[in-house]
Structures are given as structure tokens and as C-alpha cells.
């Protein structure tokens, strides 16, 4: 659909908000419960660039007035901020520690995971879920992974993660039950890395 930049905020939502959100959520839930499994959204949202369809779909499914969202500087400078605000009502959180969700666009520098809300020892659920757009969810360096949701072990090969990722992720995992959860996205697909996922290499 052709869009004018000025009113990009009004376009790209779900055709049928109730059913689309339910189907999208089941996809995210299954992906979170089975890390390593790539889920492709059937009827994705069409948010303004550089937000990907998968990121837009996740936003429409999970964001609202109650979920402050952190945007990278790059995203904050685009129509994405007004799109999110109009479509979900989610307040934009400049402070990463206040964010329930964070969005990172493709090729942007990965912000330090420890800068986001980690939850507390007694409320570890109060941590940020970071949604990161990558080049692709396969075709990258293969990593053997294990943890809850995985029968034995499996392999993931997302393309576009920084070299230091494994060390950052190990740090995140070491403070369990605290820690962030990641949803990696590419185009209209997603792959979840709950904090329990261990990279074996």
C-alpha cells in the first residue's frame, strides 16, 4: 500500500486485530517455548521502515499503555515512534531500565544487554524483552544451544549478531533468574532466546 510519510502512523496495522493478535501471540509463545524454532508470521503488520514486519507484529501483539518501549536513537528518529504511539499507545522510554520492551533495527549497534531492566531477584519477570532485527535468522555462524524448551540440543545460526554476542549472552545467563529475554527477528520471522538458553558452541 502506498503511504505518505506524514500519515505513516495510521497504516500497517492488523486487518483483524483480535484474530491476528491471537495468531501472532501463539507464534511468539511457541517460539519462546521452543527456542531455536523459527516462526514465520502469516499475516504480519506493515510498519514503517526500518521496523520489520515481524517487529511490528510483535509490537501490535504485546505493547500497550502499560509497556514503556525503548527505541534506539536510529529508530527514534524515524516514523516508527509515531507509528508505535498511534497503533499501540505504548509510551516511549528514554531510560532503558524503565523499558518493558526494546526495539533494535537492522545493522544498528547492539546496545549492552546489561543496560536494560534485568528484573530483581524476587521479581525476575520485571526485565526488558529486547527485539532485535537481523540480516537473517539462518545462514550465520552455527551455534549449538540447549536449555528448557529444547530436547537435548539444537542449532541456531542467526546472521548479523556481533562477535561478542556469546560472551554477552553468557553474562546475561549467569545472573539467572535475572536477565533479559531476546526475540531475534528478520523480515516476517522470529526466533526467541529466553534467558535460560545456553550457547554450547
Amino acid at each position: 500500500m502506498p503511504q505518505k510519510a506524514a500519515n505513516a502512523a495510521y497504516y500497517g496495522a492488523f486487518q483483524d486485530p483480535v484474530t491476528n493478535a491471537q495468531a501472532a501471540f501463539r507464534g511468539i509463545m511457541d517460539a519462546m517455548a521452543r527456542p531455536g524454532r523459527i516462526h514465520v508470521f502469516a499475516d504480519p503488520a506493515r510498519p514503517p521502515a526500518p521496523l520489520s514486519p515481524a517487529q511490528g507484529t510483535i509490537a501490535l501483539t504485546l505493547f500497550d499503555q502499560d509497556t514503556p518501549v525503548h527505541l534506539t536513537q536510529g529508530l527514534a528518529a524515524t516514523a516508527v515512534a509515531s507509528w508505535l504511539s498511534f497503533q499501540t499507545g505504548a509510551p516511549i522510554a528514554a531510560d532503558r531500565l524503565q523499558a518493558r520492551f526494546a526495539l533494535v533495527e537492522k545493522a544498528a549497534a547492539l546496545p549492552p544487554l546489561s543496560g536494560f531492566a534485568q528484573g530483581t531477584q524476587d521479581y525476575p519477570d520485571r526485565s526488558t524483552t529486547v527485539i532485535i532485527e537481523l540480516e537473517a535468522l539462518s545462514g550465520g555462524t552455527a551455534r549449538r544451544v540447549a536449555g528448557p524448551g529444547i530436547d537435548g540440543e539444537t542449532t541456531i545460526a542467526p546472521l548479523g549478531l556481533p562477535d561478542a554476542f556469546d560472551a554477552l549472552w553468557a553474562e546475561n545467563g549467569a545472573q539467572f533468574p535475572r536477565g533479559v529475554d531476546l526475540i531475534l527477528t528478520a523480515g516476517d520471522a522470529c526466533l526467541c532466546l529466553p534467558r535460560t538458553l545456553r550457547i554450547l558452541r
Partner: peptide, 19 residues
Amino acid sequence: DEQTKRMIRRAILKAIAIP
């Protein structure tokens, strides 16, 4: 309502992430 569903859905995702 949809807002309630979103709230529950978010809780479910965190529950899965912290078994």
C-alpha cells in the same frame, strides 16, 4: 478484552522464560 489478553500474554512469555 484485548488489553487484558495482552497483559496475560506478556505474563505467559515471562513465565516461559523463567520456568
